[in-house]
Amino acid sequence: MPDPSTIRAVECSPPCWMVRLALEEKGLDHECKLLNFAAGEHKSPEMLAKNPRGTVPVLMDGNIVVYETLAIFDYLEYAYPQPALLPNTNALRGRALTRLHEANNLKQVGMALFSYLMNTKAIDLDPAEVDHLASFLHDELFFWEYYYGIGHWASGSAIGLADLAVFAYVATAAHLGLELQQRYPNLHAFCLRMKERPSVIATWPSVWKQQPYSYLTEPES
């Protein structure tokens, strides 16, 4: 959690959410340990012993430790292949892996924006900087709007790992005020489909208020 003097706009880590979604989609019993970031719990001796980089998420499967979000995805798909979140044909799997790694572009621009909103005191928030960072997010969303116009899911006829990644970042942006329906109707429909899934219902951030913020809401012309 950010310091109380900051905006506290992003209370949930999209990478952690992605992993929780994957665990739920695979029906794996798990326990989610919440860490206090303001207190530095993610860099405690216990956590650094598991991940010397001090980042989250970290997956513990018995004595096996896996960190880095995409590595966790790969591990879960290998160790618990059913239900599958990657297709089993070469062509579809190739596209699915491409989309999954493409989502790193969404992570880069999304986290740059989210981190600024989370770590900047309200009095220091610069609307021009928000617009500047948001412009990179919009450039990236153009690609995903196109992909979700081709099909309901990013890489085939069924939900996959790429969809979990995209949803975590797009839903967070919507929480910050990004209006999808008019500008990104395909992404809007995708998010509505996702919100009906038990995995999303089970993991929806409890700290998010019902009404989204307005940081990314564009003024009416």
Rank of each mutant, 00 (worst) to 15 (best):
M1W: 02
M1H: 05
M1I: 05
P2Q: 02
I7Y: 03
A9Y: 05
S13D: 14
P15L: 09
C16F: 10
M18N: 06
R20E: 15
R20C: 11
L21N: 00
L21A: 00
L23S: 00
K26N: 10
C32I: 09
N36T: 11
F37Y: 10
A38P: 00
A39I: 09
A39T: 07
E41A: 09
E46N: 05
L48A: 09
A49C: 05
G54R: 06
G54F: 00
V56F: 03
L59N: 01
I64G: 08
L70F: 10
A71E: 01
A71W: 02
Y75I: 03
Y78N: 11
Y78T: 15
Y80N: 02
P83M: 01
P87Y: 06
P87K: 07
N90S: 09
N90L: 15
A91S: 11
L92P: 01
R99L: 02
N104T: 14
N104A: 15
Q108H: 14
Q108A: 15
L113R: 00
M118P: 02
M118T: 06
N119E: 15
A122G: 07
A128P: 01
L133N: 05
S135Q: 10
S135N: 07
F136I: 02
L141Y: 06
W144M: 02
E145Y: 12
Y146F: 13
Y147Q: 15
Y147G: 09
G149T: 00
I150W: 08
H152W: 13
A154F: 05
G156F: 01
G156L: 03
A158E: 13
G160W: 05
A165Y: 14
V166Q: 07
T172S: 14
E179M: 02
E179G: 03
R183S: 12
Y184V: 02
Y184L: 04
L187N: 00
A189K: 04
C191V: 10
C191Y: 01
M194L: 01
E196F: 10
R197K: 10
P198C: 03
P198W: 01
S199Y: 04
T203E: 04
P205G: 09
P205C: 00
V207Y: 12
W208P: 02
Q210F: 08
Y213H: 15
Y213M: 15
S214C: 12
